[in-house]
Design a protein around this nucleic acid. Structure first.
Lengths: 110, 110
DNA sequence: TTGACATGCAAGTTAATACTTGCCTAATAT
DNA sequence: ATATTAGGCAAGTATTAACTTGCATGTCAA
């Protein structure tokens, strides 16, 4: 169903280093145009477009048309869903980070 | 160097639904043999072996030989690293639950 | 020690993915 | 208006990935 399909699109989107680079670029600075993004990748504009299409399909990137240019925005929500469904549940019972975290929070926030 | 390679192996390993299913199976019950795992996937033993090989290469699964059988164990550590390097830094400022906890603490403890 | 069982190795096939080339449309600037 | 700039569409190629078939090796049980 849609759930599994979404998950698959998401992981597939993250599986390519060029696409991860695009996410990094948008994270550093949102709202870039296609041509701007092309400057950072060693491939043709059409190649970049196809990568962006996959990111949009995975709902990791949203676009907005402004005149003749297309702006790209990062959507981090699906990444959070990956964390909840695929990472949190695989965590070991005693994860130093988290338990330590809670203790420290109790101290600092009373 | 190795860093980028590791990252790539990890995301590639997660990109296939059969491999994610294997991780789920091992999460539910560790130490399964190859043949046991095969029962749950609709492909030949060799296909499953190849998927497991990729999971091992990504350091998500460790194996142990016992006599003529091979036991498989889940290693969740690389998933945690994905969280730290690829999800935490993309989080939105306002998040609910545990992630909010962690983020607030990280901010206050700088 | 022989037969069944658990797995390994290697080559081949099919399907999917990454990337290109070539042409097209629309918006802007001079 | 027309040249330039931003982007879209579609088909083709080349690489990679998924999966199979066939045979080999080692382990155990009778």
């Amino acid at each position: 169903m849609a759930e599994r399909q979404d998950t698959d699109l998401l992981f597939k989107a993250l599986a390519d280093s060029s696409r991860r680079k695009l996410l990094d670029l948008l994270h550093a600075h949102d709202g870039r145009t296609l041509n701007e993004l092309c400057e950072y990748l060693d491939m043709t504009r059409q190649g970049v477009t196809q990568h962006l299409d996959l990111l949009v399909a995975a709902n990791l990137v949203a676009t907005l048309r402004r005149g003749r240019e297309k702006l790209h925005f990062l959507n981090p929500v699906p990444l959070q869903e990956i964390y909840e469904r695929w990472i949190a549940k695989f965590e070991k019972p005693r994860l130093k980070g988290l338990s330590e975290l809670k203790q420290r929070l109790e101290k600092s926030n009373g």
